[in-house]
Design a binder for these strands. Structure first.
Length: 193
DNA sequence: TAAACGATGCCCT
DNA sequence: GGGCATCGTTTAC
């Protein structure tokens, strides 16, 4: 079942852990979310900290929309915009467990272990074919990318909490969430608390 | 117009 | 587990 706007129109720290176990679908490829990070305009690690700019306008738009930005000049990273329009909050999708279209993912990603097909924010956008052109598109079922609730046949994951990765500002905030015991999370593993 | 800076990934030890 | 390539966007003159 596709997630609705009301799911995203909540505090970003509630939405982020709830996204663990949900499914990202783009074309023939899809994956289970196993790692996310929350970002909010009130803290300096967030792109929206500087306010509304051409780059962050999507972040300040309505919830349930994809915020796709370029990272380190090369990679694309995908977020789901949260909270009320105008707030400036989003959840960064950091890692997936590949579900459908694994052959196509291998084709796009090259020769890597299957655990590494989507084990990072730049990797998963490459594997699913998500580019900057999808910035601002809806995630609610009426756009190219869809976010579905956890499949009924999958057990509810145990969610671990930790600090965000690759940032220098507000690095101490425990705003990273990942599925316990998943081999598909990005590099620095999270210990059980 | 120019310089600095990453919400990273890859290859090497 | 750690260091470095890489280049668009942002911010400062």
């Amino acid at each position: 079942m596709t997630l609705e706007a009301a799911f995203f129109d909540r505090p970003v720290l509630e939405v982020a852990p709830d996204l663990i176990g949900c499914v990202v679908v783009h074309g023939p490829t899809s994956g289970i979310i196993v790692e996310v990070e929350a970002y909010h305009h009130s803290e300096p690690a967030c792109h929206g900290y500087v306010g509304v700019t051409p780059r962050t306008s999507t972040l300040y738009g309505p919830p349930g929309v994809a915020y796709v930005y370029r990272s380190y000049g090369i990679h694309a990273c995908m977020n789901a915009v949260c909270e009320r329009e105008g707030v400036g909050a989003a959840v960064l999708i950091r890692a997936l467990e590949p579900l459908d279209g694994v052959g196509l993912m291998r084709e796009r990603r090259g020769a890597v272990r299957d655990e590494d097909l989507c084990s990072g924010p730049g990797k998963l956008t490459q594997a699913l074919g998500i580019g900057l052109d999808l910035n601002g598109t809806s995630l609610l079922g009426d756009g190219p990318i869809r976010l579905d609730a956890r499949p009924a046949d999958r057990p509810a994951p145990t969610v671990l909490t930790g600090t965000r990765i690759g940032i220098t500002k507000a690095a101490e905030l425990p705003w990273r969430f990942c599925a316990a015991d998943s081999p598909h999370v990005s590099r620095p593993r999270l210990r059980a608390a």
